[in-house]
Design a protein around this nucleic acid. Structure first.
Lengths: 128, 128
DNA sequence: AAAGATTGAAGTCTCAATCTTT
DNA sequence: AAAGATTGAGACTTCAATCTTT
């Protein structure tokens, strides 16, 4: 396949195993790791590489599938708060496991443990 | 911006400066670096992370913009050969320069020369 | 007027089906 | 039947415009 860019492979694996795209995963992961925050769509803009309209529609799709729920925000009638439903939490945990093992499979056999650590360190430096 | 994943930034820069997407750049780059080959759409499948239908349409768009030309392949009436036009070559060279400087800007100041070399080596190992 | 979010129009992608040539 | 390529239908994205609330 030509889709063997790393990001492409991660996305394909998630779609096949969990029925979600990489962007949907990013949103679910953000909610999973901020369970006690009031999460607005605008907060997701900093965590997911999408435009506001795309995020709005993505959230609507996840809500329609019963993976997340919306509620009103105290003191600001413009905004909406998002949180995972129980089935959304379960699916996210499953996706996290798949994601981790896909990354592991992609690196194991190609890089030693030391090389993997070095790669992670360099990439996180670039990402700052 | 949330679009600061490296790939996203490269694509945004190319679109802004040259009016081409990252996938279009991949196709142009392939043709630029294989000037004497008979390049079919199916050959591009190994170089660009797209499906055959998407490549077919991408090639049609580039042809409509006058950046590449099609011709018949000797001894096989099913296939089409692709090559850059002069203006396609010029645009590609410009895009290559922009692409290189974008990558350079993204890395300079975050990694030393030695670290950059190490990163390239590790990534190319993963990509095999 | 600005912030938060949604809707409309246009573009590109994938999958499945189709067409032509081998 | 397989190889090379295109067409049709549906999905998701972007930009621009819009709506509501502050």
């Amino acid at each position: 396949m030509a889709h063997d860019r790393v990001a492409g492979r991660l996305g394909a694996e998630l779609t096949r195993e969990c029925g979600i795209t990489i962007n949907e995963f990013d949103v679910l992961l953000y909610l999973r790791t901020h369970p006690n925050d009031v999460v607005r769509i605008s907060a997701l803009l900093d965590a997911v590489p999408l435009s506001q309209p795309a995020l709005s529609r993505l959230v609507a799709r996840l809500e329609a599938r019963g993976l997340l729920a919306r509620s009103d925000v105290q003191d600001d009638a413009r905004a909406t708060a998002l949180c995972l439903t129980p089935s959304g939490t379960a699916l996210t945990d499953q996706a996290i496991a798949i994601h981790a093992s896909t990354i592991h499979d992609a690196l194991t056999g190609k890089l030693s443990d030391q090389e993997q650590a070095a790669l992670v360190r360099l990439l996180s430096q670039v990402g700052q």
